[in-house]
Structures are given as structure tokens and as C-alpha cells.
Computed example of a mutant assay.
Amino acid sequence: MEKLLKWSVENSDSNKIPQPPPQDDPERRKIGSEIIDVILGKSDGVRIREAIEVISNTNDTLENREIAFDNLEMLVEQIDNANDVENMNLWPKILSFLSFPEKSLRLHAVWVCGTAVQNNPKAQKAFAEKGGIKLILNLLNNPDEDMEVRSKAIYAISGAIKHYSPGLEQFEKEGGYEILLSILQTSNDLSILRKVVFLFNTLLLQDATTVTTRIEEKGLAMQMIKLLGIYGDDDEDLADKILRTLLTQLQNSSKSLSEDEMNELRRILPEIKKKYGEVALSTSEWEELESNL
């Protein structure tokens, strides 16, 4: 704006008609863009690029980079902006942020990915094609990764594959089922356990035939039954998610539970039912679940 004021003063001679800079003058174009920014505000595309520039600047403060990440995450909530990430060829840069040494920045990077791909087939496609699913699964599969980052990675992988068959196929190819099952077997973080079980149930509802076959091969039912025995009595939310996932699996399977699975479920189910009753499942759902025992 200082340059605009200077230009106005220099051309304010009352004895002659002011002559603007030539049309092809770079200074004129710059002043013009400054005026547009002041009047209309910067476009979302410009704001996305500026946020990424700040995030990429390792000499900037951590606080400024986190603020830039917050701005970027809010911008990509809009479907058009999320699609523009691919149009501007910015996915490779954003995915590179997943390897930042700072935990808070990795967390923000995962969050941005998850938000951008939510309910957005175009963004899901671009994310998968740029290797995003593999990178997020690597974070999930790293036992040394911060628990908060891994938890947010479940949000990101869920957004990347829900209602997007090519993403689900890539998820399977990259060992996604095994990675999620390993989390159920090794983690004692209830928040992560709830999210993983809920994701399995979501995938069952999305593609019952394929997912049911895959999780039966991996032995998911037994692992969920074990978790129900360990945590079900103390965590209503986890118990609810496990019961609903087991019921969904049984509704879509041509196989019954194994003898070991049925015996274990018979042992722990009465107490779970007594404690939660219809808070967890309706009467008809309890009857359907018990009919498989």
C-alpha cells in the first residue's frame, strides 16, 4: 500500500492529467494485485500456498507453523479447496510433512490429510495415488510413534478408504487388515481400540462380503472377544462397539463362530448383558447374537 500511495503522490500534478504506468509495467501489476487483496481478500488457493510455505520453513517458530497447519486444516474442510490441493500439485509436499521430527507437526499433518479426504472421492483418489494410504499405515504400524499421532492416523485412514473401493483395495494390499489387528492385539489405549473396532464395523457395513471374508481369515472375532473380556466390564463404549461389530460380522458371514470363540463368548456375555442390557444392543439384537452361540 505504501507503493500505491507513492505512485498516487508522484502522479498528482494538478497541471497535467495523471498518466498511469504502462499496462505491461510489473509495478502496475503488483499494485493491482495488492488492491484486489485489500478489497476482496486473498483467494483460498493463495492462502493454502502461504500456509504450506510457513509450514515448510524450518527456520520459522514451531508456534507459527502450527498456526499455519490450523489454517490449512480449516481450508481443506471445503471440498473445492481439498480438490485444489491436487490441482496445485501440493499433495507430495503435504505428505512430506508426515515425516517431520516434531510430533505436533506430524499430528497436524495427519489431521490435514484426514480432513481433506473426508467424503471426497476426488481427494481420496489423489491421496491414494500419491501414496498417502501407505504412509499413514506406516505411522500406524510404528510402535515407537506417538500414541496421539497413531490415533489421528486412524481418522485419516478411515477417511481415505470409506466408501472408496480403490482405497480399500490399496489398504488391503499394504497390509492394512494385519496392521489394525496388530493394534488390537498389542495396544492398551482404549481410545485407539475403540476407533479400530469402529472402523472394522464401518468397513463391514460398506463392503460386507469382502471385508467379512478378510477379517475371518485374520481371526478378528476372537481378538474382539478377548478385548470384551478384558475391558468390556469397565468400558461401555468399547463393549458396545465390539458387540455391534461381532453382530455385523455374523449377519454377513456364511460361517459360524469357532468352538473356542463360542465358548469364550458364552463365558463373558451374560455379565456384559446384565450390566449394559439394551444400552448396548436391543432385545432383538441380543437374541440374534445369542442365537449364534
Rank of each mutant, 00 (worst) to 15 (best):
E271Y: 08
N71C: 13
D24P: 04
T210R: 14
T212Y: 02
I268E: 09
E77L: 07
K274T: 12
I268Y: 09
A221G: 01
E86S: 13
N57R: 10
M88G: 00
N59E: 13
E10T: 01
I136S: 06
I36T: 14
K274I: 04
V76T: 06
I215G: 01
L220E: 08
L293W: 13
D235N: 12
Q170S: 02
N252K: 09
D37V: 14
L75I: 00
N263W: 07
T115C: 06
E172K: 13
A116G: 01
K226Y: 12
E264H: 14
L247P: 01
E77F: 11
L140E: 01
K3S: 10
G232D: 05
T213K: 09
Q78S: 05
Q19N: 07
K6G: 08
L265T: 13
R49T: 04
L181V: 15
S182F: 09
P22L: 05
E285T: 01
T210Q: 11
A128T: 01
L107S: 00
R28D: 09
S99F: 06
N87T: 14
L238N: 04
L107A: 00
E278H: 08
W286Y: 14
L250Q: 12
L137D: 03
I225K: 01
K130M: 01
A239C: 15
K241G: 02
S187F: 04
D207M: 06
V85K: 06
G32M: 07
I272W: 12
S8E: 06
S56Y: 02
L135Q: 07
P21M: 09
M1K: 06
T245V: 14
T186R: 10
C113G: 01
N201C: 04
T61R: 09
D146Y: 02
L4G: 02
K16G: 03
Q19D: 03
L293C: 14
L95Y: 03
S191E: 14
K122D: 04
S104F: 01
M1V: 05
Y155V: 00
M1F: 04
R194V: 01
Q223G: 00
T115L: 05
L193K: 12
C113L: 10
I31H: 14
T61V: 10
T115N: 11
R267D: 15
I39R: 04
L168Y: 05
I192P: 03
N59P: 07
S43E: 10
E278N: 14
D25I: 06
Q23R: 07
E10H: 09
E178W: 07
E288W: 10
I136W: 03
N292V: 10
A160P: 05
N15D: 10
E288G: 06
N57W: 07
T186V: 08
P143N: 02
T212D: 00
K195S: 11
F100H: 06
I79K: 15
S191Y: 07
L293T: 08
L5E: 09
